[in-house]
């Protein structure tokens, strides 16, 4: 015997089965569904709330505080680099100023250096 099962017939079978589920089981399934949906919603919002909550606290356990530590490290390194660049620039400026004053006070006139 050839058993022809297409999705229309599967749907009909499932609908038929669903009508035979007792109201108590249906209510239980409904409660489980609502519970699962609520649980999913909490999971989505929890990290954002946790991040806000940990901003002012000392907790280091959360991965969010790890991000904050990284952010501070990046800021610190950026400050360090800016400071180093500024210091290097100051040295270059000081050298240039030394040469400038030497030219401006030298025995040789200015045009000797410019021409």
């Amino acid at each position: 015997m050839k058993n022809n099962l297409n999705h229309h017939s599967i749907k009909q079978l499932l609908d038929h089965s669903a009508t035979r589920i007792s109201p108590a089981t249906l209510a239980q399934l409904q409660r489980s569904r609502v519970h699962a949906l609520e649980h999913q919603r909490l999971h989505r919002t929890a990290p954002a709330l946790a991040w806000l909550g940990h901003l002012g606290s000392h907790s280091d356990s959360s991965h969010t505080s790890k991000h904050i530590r990284w952010a501070f490290a990046v800021i610190f390194v950026a400050c360090l680099f800016s400071g180093a660049a500024y210091w290097q620039n100051s040295i270059a400026d000081r050298d240039t100023s030394d040469v400038d004053i030497a030219i401006l006070t030298d025995d040789l006139p200015l045009h000797v250096y410019v021409d």
Partner: peptide
């Protein structure tokens, strides 16, 4: 011109 003057001064 100022840069050139500085270079000349350093060379001299």
């Amino acid at each position: 011109q100022r840069d050139r003057a500085r270079e000349t001064y350093k060379a001299l």
